[in-house]
Write a protein that binds this DNA or RNA. Sequence first.
DNA 1: GTATGCTTTCGGC
DNA 2: TTACGGCCGAAAGCATAC
Length: 363
Amino acid sequence: MNRVIGHLDLDYFYAQVEEVQDPSLRGRPVLVCVFSGRTDESGVVSTANYIARNLGVRSGMPISLAKKRLAGKDGSFIRMQHEKYEAISEQIMQTTRESVDLLEQSGIDEAFFDITQKSAGDFVSAASIARDIKERILNSQLLTCSVGVAPNKVVAKIASDFTKPNGLTVVTPNQTKSFLEPLPVEKLYGVGPKTAKALSEIGVETIGQLSRQKSESLEKIFGQKLGAYLHDAANGINDEPVVESREITQLSRIITLKRNTKNPEEIYAQLSPAIEDLHSRLVANNRSFRTLSAIAILTDLSTRTKSRTLEAHTNDLETLRSLGKELLTELAFSSAREIRRAGIRVAELADIANQTSLAEYLE
DNA sequence: GTATGCTTTCGGC
DNA sequence: TTACGGCCGAAAGCATAC
């Protein structure tokens, strides 16, 4: 049977949630912002509604710049409340699960789903399931979303992005090749600037052009794995499964310092609560880590990291503190500029339950 | 040379 | 003219093993 895969994307999610909770925001620019606390308006725009986007506001833009773009426009700058969006996201994912065979959440506002069984492999039936999902989300939360339905994840993701906001794009197996044909290669998941540049150098700009390259020549340039993937994906072939629950692979905490500094003590003092917080989250989830990194964002906004991988997993707070401080100190000493933001990250996570004990490890 | 694992950087939201 | 978060996973870069 045809696989039938969908991708769901909640439209300008945080800002739309704010609009729902305060209807007086409708028709005005709405910006959900992260305020760093350094000055009254230092921080960036996380999400903007379409009215703000049409006035030139983008996510990641400094709040002060967004204010200029919206001069005299009655924009609303709202502090981001992550827990609030998290709770709504959870409810949406929960109800959407009822309409599909499998749901794979990716990020707070996106999910892949598999409706092969529910649609019996039929794309007409799949389209009505997708409309039903959209309607349930609209009825229960008053939120719009954009959905793509296609034969696989790669095409479904491109399809959900194709028409938005409030879009539904269905790409049948027969339509897949011509749907992909004119699109730039960057639309393909896994094609970053590096790969795009390499492709451009062999005269490949569109997915159609990519699809006509020999698999062997792509494998020669990009390696077996990426080369084969690119060839398949450009030809509308991709058999990555929808996986119900993805394990978290890393956790991090990052803060903006009160002022720029290179002093490790001053940085550590401010980062300390974030380290404790990261530790509680590890413990709460019964997870341990094997790799620890310190992160520094310098005054020119460039990023430096320093990592260390341990011989065995641990979730010991003292290790986190002392090793974190050590890595941070190394970063501070090796850095040419002062540090603006600092953070800590743990990776190579494992379940405490499955963790090799010291005794087993020594055997 | 290729595969693998670790470190660092990139990029999306 | 500049302005500037907090996460996450993936990509890229690099070292080492075979």
